[in-house]
Amino acid sequence: MTGAPAGISALLLDLDGTLVNSEPLHREGYRIYFAEKGWDVPDLTIFTGRRALDVLEAEPGPWSGHDPQAVLDEILEHVPDEDPDPVAGARELILGARATGTPVAIVTSAPPSWVERSLASLGLGVGSVDLVVTALDVSAGKPDPEGFALACERLGVDPAAAVAAEDSPAGIRAALAAGVRRVHGITTTHDAAELRSAGAVEVHDDARPLVDLLD
């Protein structure tokens, strides 16, 4: 088949929590770090979907008064060195998009190295998607719309006709602010009510229902 399904200009996919269930690994890194420092562990959902450095710079917490980059570097040293588990349907979604000629962009708050490792856990390479927008490509992370807007610009597609998938309220708000009208929530890290409140048009347990959009 060639040409994207009618009404879908592109798929704009978050990575952590949407394609791979990596949030437990990241949260374990935070917990270990905070415990070693003797700090109270905050509500770690504040980090979900956002660049960690943005949170450390902007949000109050036990890290206040410390160098944000130094704190982040230490946190990353405590994240378990394990491949993330795939979210059900993630591999099929990317392969289905390729088969139907639907452009696919990964829009993530993670660095390029983590994108490569995560896709490898799905049995895929970076070349399986048309575009990757990482934390290094934008000046402002989610919930700022810059990443999604940049993805649409580089793909040359209308954001209003794109479909996005996100697991966090910050990511959902970012996609909507970029002009994406159909943003689907994945309940790997937040409950359905939170995702709907952020503006998700539909909420799913995993990525499998999104595959049906490509039929």
Rank of each mutant, 00 (worst) to 15 (best):
V20N: 03
A198G: 10
S64F: 01
D206T: 13
F34G: 02
L155P: 08
L56D: 08
R181D: 01
E153V: 02
L13H: 02
D205Y: 01
V107A: 09
P103G: 03
R181P: 00
I32G: 00
V87L: 02
G185H: 02
A178R: 03
L53C: 08
S22M: 08
G171Y: 05
G65R: 11
I172R: 07
A110K: 11
W114D: 14
A192F: 01
G65I: 02
S64A: 14
L15F: 05
G123K: 11
V55P: 01
R208D: 00
A120V: 02
G17E: 02
F47W: 12
V79T: 12
L12I: 07
L119P: 13
A193P: 02
G147L: 05
D73P: 08
E77V: 15
A97F: 08
P80N: 04
A140C: 10
L15Q: 09
V133M: 07
S22H: 05
G156W: 05
A52G: 13
A165R: 01
R182A: 06
R173M: 00
P112V: 04
A174E: 00
R196P: 04
G185R: 01
V107S: 07
L210M: 09
I32D: 00
A70Q: 14
A162T: 11
V79D: 01
S139G: 15
E153H: 09
S139E: 15
D43C: 08
V211H: 07
A161C: 11
R27D: 07
F34W: 08
A99N: 10
A164K: 06
Q69M: 12
G147A: 15
G96S: 11
V104R: 05
I32F: 00
H204N: 05
D206H: 14
G29V: 09
A164Y: 05
W39S: 03
A178G: 04
D81S: 15
H26F: 09
A193C: 01
P24S: 04
V183Q: 00
A97I: 10
G156K: 14
A161D: 14
S9R: 07
A6L: 12
E202W: 05
H204W: 10
H184V: 05
P169K: 10
L131A: 03
Y33V: 03
A174G: 12
L155M: 10
D14V: 10
D43R: 14
D14C: 10
G185T: 02
A192D: 12
D67S: 06
E74T: 06
V87W: 07
A174H: 01
A90G: 12
S197M: 00
V87P: 11
S109M: 11
P60R: 14
A135W: 04
A207Y: 08
E194F: 00
P84R: 03
R154D: 01
A97S: 12
T45W: 07
D54Y: 08
G3R: 14
H66T: 09
G61W: 05
D158M: 07
I172L: 09
T108N: 13
G179V: 00
D215S: 13
Q69R: 15
A70R: 14
P209K: 03
A161N: 10
A52C: 11
T48S: 14
E146P: 06
T102D: 04
V20E: 03
G127I: 10
A160V: 06
A135C: 14
H66L: 15
A97K: 04
